[in-house]
Deep mutational scan, measured.
Amino acid sequence: MFYPNSPQTSPQLTQIPYGQQYAMMQRQIQQPYHPFATTEPQARLYPYHYQGPIQQEQGGFITQQSTAASPQYVQMRVTPVDQSIMSGYPNQTANGSSSSSFNYNIHPQQQQQQQQQQQQLRHHAMPVGSVPLQDDRYRKQLIVNYLAPDVTSTDLHELFSRFGELDGARIIYDKQTNMSKGYGFVYFCHAEDAKEAVERMSGYEFHGKWLKVGYSTNPLNIVPSNSSPYVHAGSRGAAG
C-alpha cells in the first residue's frame, strides 16, 4: 500500500523548493479562506456584503464582478436614472436638479381664491374633541361614552347635575331594538360647569363602566337656548 506522503511516492527534499517541504498533501497545500485577509477597505468593513468592485458596462447597466450573493443577503441591482424623465418638472436647472418651490404660472386672482378656499376649509374642519370658538353652545354640550346598558337618562342627569344647572341629558337608544347604544349627551347651562365635568368625570366608574367624557361637536345635538329642557323620564321611549 502506498500513501500520498510515503517515501516511495514523495520526491527528495532537495528537489522541493524551500517553504513547501512540509506541504505535501493536497489539504495542506490548499490555503484556508480568510474573509478579512484583503487589501480593499470595503471588504474589511463589510465582509458579507462586499463582492468586489463595481464596473460600468456598455448599455448603462451596473453589474458586479463577483458571483451571486448568499441567500441570506439580498443584493440590489441599481440602474442609472434617465434624465429625460425629470425634464417635465418646473424650475429645473441645466444640471438636472430642481428647486423646492414650484411655479405653475397661476393667475394671481386664482391663487388668492385657492388660498381663501383653504382658509375656509381649515375654519370649518374641526378635529374630534375640539371646541370651536365662534359658538358658545359647543362648550356646553358633552358626550358621555361607555355607558352601561342599564343607565337611563334620569341617572345621567343626576350624575352630572352636581356640577351645575343642566339644560338636559339623554341616552341614545336603538330604534329597532330599543336598547341603549352605550353613549349619551349632557347639556349644561354654563360653559364653566361643562369644563369642570369634563375634567372630573373622564375615567369615572359608573355602573361598572369607566366613562369617557368630552365635548360634543355635532351641531345636530345642540340644544337651542330658547327651547324647553328635555324630559328626564326613566322610560326608554321618552328618553330616546
Rank of each mutant, 00 (worst) to 15 (best):
D193W: 01
V151M: 02
S227C: 08
V131K: 05
S99C: 14
Y73G: 04
S130Q: 13
E199S: 11
I85N: 08
A233W: 02
Q31K: 05
A43C: 15
L133T: 05
M25E: 02
R77N: 10
E196T: 12
F206S: 01
Y33R: 04
K181T: 00
N226A: 07
F61W: 13
I62F: 10
Q64I: 15
G214K: 01
N218I: 00
M25H: 14
V144M: 09
N221K: 09
I85T: 06
Q119F: 08
S87D: 09
A191K: 06
Y48V: 11
A43W: 15
G129L: 03
R44C: 15
Y187Q: 00
M201H: 01
A23K: 02
S101M: 15
I29D: 15
F160P: 04
E158L: 13
R44I: 15
P17T: 08
L159T: 04
K212A: 02
P132A: 09
S225V: 06
Y50W: 08
G203T: 00
Q115D: 07
S235Q: 10
Y50H: 05
P17E: 01
S227W: 14
P4R: 06
R77D: 05
V131Y: 14
Q58T: 14
V231I: 11
F160S: 02
H123A: 13
H123Y: 15
V231T: 03
Q15P: 06
V144E: 00
Y50R: 02
E158W: 15
Y183C: 00
G129D: 10
L211F: 01
N178M: 13
F163E: 01
Y33A: 06
S84D: 09
F185G: 00
T67M: 12
C189R: 09
G19L: 10
E40P: 05
M179Q: 12
P108G: 14
Q176L: 04
A191Q: 03
D82P: 08
L13C: 09
P53E: 07
Q120M: 12
V128D: 11
V186Y: 13
V78S: 04
N105T: 08
Q26C: 07
A197S: 04
Q65G: 08
P80R: 12
G59L: 13
N103G: 08
Q55C: 14
F206M: 11
S6Q: 08
Q56R: 10
I171E: 01
N178L: 09
A125M: 13
Y73F: 10
G208I: 00
Q51R: 06
Q58E: 04
V231P: 10
H49L: 14
G19Q: 11
P53I: 15
Q113Y: 12
Q134S: 09
G96T: 05
V81K: 05
D136G: 08
N91K: 09
S66E: 13
S153I: 07
A233R: 11
A43P: 09
Q112P: 08
H157K: 13
P80A: 07
M86D: 05
Y46Q: 05
T152E: 08
P53A: 12
E57D: 09
I143R: 00
Q119H: 06
V231F: 11
L147I: 15
S66P: 12
Q118V: 10
P4E: 02
P53C: 15
E205Q: 04
T154N: 12
E192V: 07
N5R: 06
R162L: 11
S100M: 03
A169S: 08
S235W: 03
T217K: 06
E196A: 11
R170Q: 00
V213L: 03
R200L: 12
Y22E: 11
D82W: 15
P80G: 02
M86P: 04
S99V: 14
V144Y: 04
Y146F: 05
V198W: 05
S216K: 00
K212W: 00
D174F: 02
T9F: 15
P4G: 02
P4T: 10
P149H: 09
